[in-house]
Amino acid sequence: MDAPATYLNWNFILISIPNVVMIVGMVAVFVLALVVPFPSHSEIVESAEPQDE
């Protein structure tokens, strides 16, 4: 934990491996959220506005 992180260096880009892991992980979670089907719920309605009872 006390050792400095390993860095990737490509041209002017310099980024640590932990930061790369975080960014790739966040992109992966975002893509998964778009493609993984959400459990259906019988109470979900077509209207965009909240329903007055």
């Binding site: 959220a33 329903q51 007055d52």
Partner: peptide, 19 residues
């Protein structure tokens, strides 16, 4: 009814809205 809705539009059924 707006403050505490019990139903949501159908397009809210996506994991994107969980973030």
């Amino acid at each position: 009814a707006h403050l505490l809705p019990d139903r949501q539009p159908v397009f809210v059924g996506s994991w994107v809205y969980i973030f």
